Simulated scan of single mutants.
Amino acid sequence: MTRAAQQEATRTDPLELVPAPVCRLKRDASFAELQRMESDPAFRAHYLAELDALIVRNTEDATAEIHRAIYPDSEERAA
């Protein structure tokens, strides 16, 4: 057995341990479930409300951090 053949035989890439058709079936099933959930109006309303709240909170946190970086003494004066 050649060195290249030995390396090929001992490859431990986890993606290669699962046959391609099985990976494709799992991926297709996951995608179908995602499509089903995204098309559900109740799920969309709940998820989008949470997403909007998270975006607002992250924006507020980023703004506060930038403000502290630009005006480091402002917190001491406010206290």
Rank of each mutant, 00 (worst) to 15 (best):
A32G: 07
A45W: 00
R57N: 05
R68N: 14
F31H: 08
A5P: 01
S74C: 03
P19V: 02
A79R: 06
A53Q: 12
L15S: 05
L25K: 05
R57M: 05
A9S: 11
V56N: 01
I55D: 09
F43R: 03
D73K: 03
R11F: 04
L34W: 15
R11D: 11
R3I: 11
P41S: 03
A53P: 04
L54K: 10
L17V: 04
Y47I: 01
R36G: 01
E8M: 15
A53G: 07
L51R: 11
E50N: 09
A20L: 10
P19G: 00
S30L: 13
D28I: 10
A9I: 08
A32N: 12
A45D: 04
M37Q: 06
A49W: 06
I66M: 08
S39L: 07
R57I: 04
L48I: 05
I55S: 06
D73S: 05
E76T: 09
S74R: 13
D73E: 12
S74E: 05
P19Q: 02
V18H: 00
P41Y: 03
K26R: 06
A32V: 13
I70K: 02
R68T: 13
Y47P: 00
R27P: 00
C23T: 12
A62W: 08
Q6V: 08
E33N: 07
R27M: 10
L51M: 15
M1C: 14
E8P: 05
N58P: 00
I55T: 15
M37L: 15
P41M: 02
T2I: 00
P72E: 03
V22E: 15
